[in-house]
Design a protein around this nucleic acid. Structure first.
Lengths: 189, 189
DNA sequence: GTCTATACCCGGATAGAC
DNA sequence: GTCTATCCGGGTATAGAC
């Protein structure tokens, strides 16, 4: 975990890093409902009011957690985009899609927190959102509309999977392939 | 509004219909957080405990609201699929996508409730989910994987729009077009 | 079928002592 | 920087009188 200092984030003292780290663990293990000031304090062996000596409140805490999420996501996608090889057209996009899906399924509560509310861009480290988006934009050849459509497809697949909204026998790998085929036609290989 | 009688739904007495109707209004006007037993009772001019004479609890109420949502959605999509005309390839899919998007944007809180949790299929009127899905499956030529991919694209676009997750200047109509182009290639026109 | 009263959870946040 | 005590709000649900 690493978080850059930023205007809307709490001052990153060592103790604050511990707190944010504990919050991330709590979120990932037990979901957003479990991320309360009381439970977080309990996890740290202190009382809830003590947290307010380090953080302005819960939303500041959430912003810090979200920033960590975007840094980890950006790193994962950059890694996938950097891989070489792959078999034929769509290879780059398929790898990127797999990396995105794996991130979301491995850390579903974090993924939800990152995407279920408006992004507080002014509070995040500058350039972080662009860093996370860059690999996809490059892979589809720089067309921002196509990149947004591909992102929406991936996000929709993930949310419907996480929410258990597909019918019981659905073949999700096949659906991913069917979707990516369409986007790959507009992409640089 | 009309709800079919079904195993997991409350008995549809006239009074229950009033309650479900009021719950739907509360949800659509003020969001999911506003749909509480207290506020619902207040809307109806009674006290919260009185609701439990009609309904087993809140989740039964939500199931009834969701059933109404799927009936309205199915009706809207059947209407869009039934329209004739349209200009060239992708016309059918584009009309269907527009109808789906319009439903979601017009009734965002209902749309969220319908999609943000596992579908309690066994509690809904039999065949209702299939009825809502049929127009899309038919439009993409009967391929269920392609239909799921197209659904995921639409759902992703809608959720990212509702959650205000696209960057400020994003051209969402252009993104819809870019996405639908890919799916239309596999569709019957 | 409605009421009052109530029990029981949960949450975020503050004041002021140490 | 931590504590205790407390305030405020919210929620689902039940018991028992009318």
């Amino acid at each position: 975990m690493s978080v850059a200092e930023a205007p809307g984030l709490p001052p990153l003292t060592p103790r604050v890093r511990e707190i944010v780290s504990a919050a991330l663990a709590l979120l990932e293990e037990h979901g957003a409902e479990a991320l309360t000031m009381r439970r977080l304090a309990e996890q740290l062996g202190i009382r809830a009011p003590s947290l307010y000596k380090h953080l302005a409140g819960k939303s500041e805490l959430e912003t810090a957690v979200i920033a960590v999420g975007f840094e980890d996501l950006a790193t994962a996608l950059e890694g996938a985009a950097g891989e070489t090889g792959g078999r034929g057209p769509g290879g780059g996009l398929a790898r990127l899609g797999s990396a995105y899906r794996e991130f979301a399924l491995a850390r579903p509560h974090l993924y939800r927190l990152m995407n279920e509310r408006p992004l507080a861009r002014e509070l995040l480290p500058p350039g972080l959102e662009d860093r996370a988006a860059a690999p996809l934009v490059a892979t589809v050849g720089g067309d921002p509309d196509l990149a947004r459509a591909a992102w929406a497809f991936a996000h929709g697949m993930i949310m419907l999977e996480l929410n258990d909204r597909f019918p019981p026998g659905a073949d999700l790998d096949a659906a991913w392939q069917a979707g990516l085929r369409g986007f790959a036609r507009g992409a640089i290989q």
